[in-house]
Simulated scan of single mutants.
Amino acid sequence: MKHLSIALGLLFALAATSHAEEIGSVNTEWKLTGSHKLVVEAFDDPKVEGVACFVGKPERGGIAGAFGVAEEVSDVSIACRQVGPIRFKESVPLQEDAFSERRSIIFKTLHVVRMVDRKRNTLVYLTYTDKIISGSAKNSVTAVTVDRATPIPVKD
């Protein structure tokens, strides 16, 4: 029973992840079985219309990368921008994962956390990776200021 609940929890976590759109990539190291590269992906904030985040991340090539079993490194960067009128689809918590993506078969996940800075009426986005047992302090942060005429609806 314990194993079943762990498996169901992992499946739920995988199903709950959002999908990003690849914008482009550059090769950083040529490999016969597939090059290592830097990839830029975009994702739209699922609760905030008019905000898109662009995440730069390395992807391993080689045999392990080709089969999707390589554990990706934790070096990620982020830039979020207003790309249209900002509208909130629903109230947002002061802090939550806006996007997440697996970076290895099971153990590593990339997170983009949306935080609300009420004082400055600003959405702050932090990206980092974690593992089931330990994570990395490598991170990147960006912010999108929301016009004062549009207060951020915070879910308390």
Rank of each mutant, 00 (worst) to 15 (best):
D45P: 06
V69R: 08
Y125W: 14
A79I: 15
S18K: 12
H3A: 13
A7I: 14
F12A: 14
A13I: 10
V83P: 06
L4A: 10
D130W: 11
V26P: 04
D117L: 07
V40C: 05
L110N: 00
K108F: 11
T142D: 10
L10V: 15
W30K: 05
L126C: 00
E49W: 05
G9D: 15
A98L: 13
G34V: 03
I105W: 12
V154K: 01
A64D: 15
K47R: 12
K57D: 01
I106W: 14
I105E: 10
K108M: 11
W30Y: 10
A15L: 10
G56T: 13
P151V: 02
V113G: 01
T129Y: 04
V116T: 01
F43V: 07
S104I: 06
E41L: 02
L4M: 08
V48I: 07
L110S: 00
D147I: 12
A16Q: 10
S77H: 06
C53R: 12
K138R: 09
K119V: 07
L38R: 03
A66K: 13
E96S: 14
E71P: 07
S100L: 05
S77L: 06
E96C: 04
I152F: 03
S25P: 10
T142G: 08
D97S: 15
W30E: 04
V92F: 04
V146P: 00
N121K: 01
L38M: 09
K155P: 01
A13W: 10
E90F: 02
A79L: 15
R118W: 00
A13N: 09
A98T: 15
V83A: 06
V40D: 02
K57Y: 09
T28Q: 01
K155E: 12
A66T: 11
K2P: 00
A16F: 08
G68Q: 02
V146N: 01
I86Y: 11
R81M: 14
K2T: 04
E41R: 06
R114D: 05
T129G: 05
H19E: 01
I106K: 10
V55L: 08
F43C: 05
A16L: 13
S134K: 11
S25L: 13
K108P: 05
G65W: 00
T150M: 14
A137H: 08
S134I: 09
P46A: 07
S74D: 14
W30R: 03
N139L: 03
V48C: 04
A137G: 10
